[in-house]
Design a protein around this nucleic acid. Structure first.
Ligand SMILES: [Mn+2]
Ligand SMILES: [Mn+2]
Ligand SMILES: [Zn+2]
Ligand SMILES: [Zn+2]
Lengths: 148, 148
DNA sequence: AACACAAATGCAACATAATTGCAATTAAAA
DNA sequence: TTTTAATTGCAATTATGTTGCATTTGTGTT
């Protein structure tokens, strides 16, 4: 489990570093900054988001950061019908081989935010004649912040 | 309802033409060919698929064909986590304003085929504090043809 | 059947997004 | 501290998507 400050959502440097270590990734500035950004904002981001946010890093480095994170079970990809992939932080029990993503995703039509609905589990689906190995569920609508 | 040949899955030229007419689209070679291709194969295709299949048409024309089809309720977009959007044929009851897509989609990890599971309805989802307006469900696994 | 008009197409140019190769730099192990 | 391999930044390349415009085509009207 991650330990975030209940007030500012910040995470300890050592914990952040451990996440990278646990996934056999070298600890670099770019990786630390990107991972911290995802965790403290508790939402999913696209490559474009990162490019706008982290102008100090080369675009190629950001591409490669997202790539190594998804390859190594730090991030998971969230499908979209716009062609714009967003990435979410994996649960601590995820490994490259064994992802545990039975949660839904929500995209707000109003503010554009994409988030993992970690508490809402996707029902088990069986389809005759098919072998279903993975189920993705993406909800669209209006998020609580935009409703208020 | 569409009337397809039970043997070869082919559709009558007049029916194809009517689909375009019903959506207030002019009947052109490119549109007829693309629509026929989707219907007779009964699966979803990406822009790339069309570009490979229809070399006689300009890329721009194919882009614009997909665009006018989705704008006018002939096709719907199917989300993916690869950044590659695929398109499926809408049901005959779809209009530009009112789409009826409560069905699931299946992507085969083996042959890559994407298809609409028209018979399998997506459950109604309610999330406290959120307003859910649309739900997409994408299954991945192995299709019956690849299992056999 | 011929005409008029708007819509669709093809092509070239342009713009944006993503990938690759390689030298310089840096993290981690020895 | 030294060694080694992974990571980074930059330039070049490739892939993907968009726009403007002249030409062609579909469709309603005469
Ligand atoms: Mn998620
Ligand atoms: Mn569908
Ligand atoms: Zn919102
Ligand atoms: Zn298959």
């Amino acid at each position: 489990m991650l330990h975030l400050c209940y007030y500012c959502n910040m995470i300890k440097y050592s914990e952040l570093k451990n996440i990278l270590k646990q996934h056999k990734l070298r600890v670099t500035d770019c990786r630390m900054d990107v991972l911290e950004y995802f965790i403290k904002n508790n939402q999913a981001f696209s490559f474009k988001n990162l490019e706008d946010e982290f102008t100090q890093y080369d675009r190629v480095t950001l591409y490669r950061t997202l790539h190594s994170f998804t390859e190594n079970g730090v991030f998971h990809k969230i499908p979209s019908d716009t062609g714009m992939i967003t990435y979410g932080v994996c649960s601590t029990t995820c490994s490259p081989q064994n992802h545990q993503h039975n949660h839904m995703h929500f995209q707000c039509n109003c503010c554009g935010k994409v988030e993992c609905l970690a508490e809402d589990h996707i029902p088990v689906v069986k389809i005759p004649l098919y072998e279903v190995m993975e189920v993705n569920m993406i909800l669209k609508g209006v998020c609580p912040q935009c409703i208020a």
